[in-house]
Write a protein that binds this DNA or RNA. Structure first.
Lengths: 215, 215
DNA sequence: CAAGTTAGTGGACAACTGTTCACTCGGTTA
DNA sequence: TAACCGAGTGAACAGTTGTCCACTAACTTG
């Protein structure tokens, strides 16, 4: 069965174990562990590496967590990009939910990480994630501004609307990753509700009058 | 300064330490710790009791957590009750948000517990909390059914709407307990956004046509 | 008041934790 | 090729953890 050490160059080897550490955490999260309950040692062990080797890559579990925040939000932004283009103006909502569910299925661990750790006790990670979510919301607000109905909305109102939509998304993701893996019926039900909620929200848009610019 | 052992009867004494254990957890949560990172020993220590005494009251940290779920949702239901009565039909929304913020201020630890642990790795606690939230949502749906505009809505649609409102509440609570304690400006801003979001949501209500009963 | 019950004690246990240190040994570079 | 560098090793550390056990002493009950 040949040598099992495929990483030849030193840089390759480094990248490889680093990723093994990150993946080890994601795997344990997916298995139901809580991030703050993970020990450096268990992570190293799961990555097939001795505890001391951990420090060659991250100075602490927090640092590793921050790396995961980056990695996860790369995924989230890719999703937003997918949603941005190729959205038939009718059924924007239906397609958006489809795209969301699709991404959750494909990057389950990343979404679990964001949705779980974003509410954890760990202050530094929680704030990092909440900050990224704020950014994410702002990006969505900018996207929304392109819709004709929303063209005259104030930035403040757009943020408020984007926040509402993101809340719904987060709750949807939370429900999805909580449901058993690959349970199409449960997923479909969750998607159905999410779609209704988004439809209802958007239904209000034409009737909104901001207090701030009441003209 | 007299004797510091005010619990005379055995039952009193028991109740007293039990509550001390619960409060110790709430306090540590409020201080930023994660529930799954709390150790039985640290809790006992903070309650001023030896580790073995813990077992006289709870067989595990999970059991203690479940007790906290109960305690917390007693608070939440009290809030719902407060909101149910004495809501001037105009400004229902404004008052609801006020009541919510008021309760969060007064029972901060309980809300922190629900909002944090409801997303934690700990499966049994997470499910317990999510179950309670579902119940809570259903109660809200029932309440909503009393509003004239919603009288003809299907139960399914009412649940969907209640879910949307509860999502907004949860997000609002999350933001509030994340903000520094007693920061009126930050709180006011959060309340302002929440109110807008609820207003927007309710704005859609008169225009909603369910797919299911399209008459 | 004597016997019984029980909340809380204190010591011990093996297991696990984060971090340190001196080390090996293969890829990199001068 | 020789010196170097750095990813990963392995042993050791002091501290903490959950749980077990025999114990005490104060409240309760016959």
């Amino acid at each position: 069965m040949g040598p099992v050490r495929p990483a030849r160059t030193q840089a390759e080897r480094r990248r490889h174990t680093r990723q093994a550490l990150l993946d080890a955490v994601l795997l344990q999260l997916e298995a139901g562990e809580s991030f703050d309950a993970l020990s450096l040692r268990s992570v190293a062990r799961a990555a097939g590496v001795v505890p001391t080797a951990f420090y060659r890559h991250f100075e602490s579990m927090d640092a590793l967590g921050l790396a995961l925040v980056e990695e996860s939000f790369r995924t989230l932004r890719a999703m937003l990009r997918d949603a941005r283009e190729g959205l038939p103006p009718e059924q924007v909502i239906h397609r958006s939910v489809e795209i969301l569910m699709e991404h959750v299925r494909q990057h389950r661990a990343h979404f679990i990480f964001v949705v779980r750790v974003g509410y954890t006790g760990n202050v530094v990670l929680r704030h990092a994630i909440r900050g990224e979510i704020r950014l994410f919301t702002s990006e969505l607000a900018t996207d929304l501004a392109r819709f004709p109905v929303l063209r005259e909305w104030t930035t403040d109102d757009l943020q408020m609307l984007a926040g509402l939509l993101v809340n719904t998304m987060i709750a949807t993701v939370g429900a999805t990753v909580d449901a058993p893996v690959a349970a199409p019926a449960a997923e479909a039900e969750i998607a159905r509700v999410a779609e209704k909620q988004l439809r209802l929200t958007m239904l209000a848009v034409p009737h909104w009058r901001s207090e701030r610019s009441p003209r």
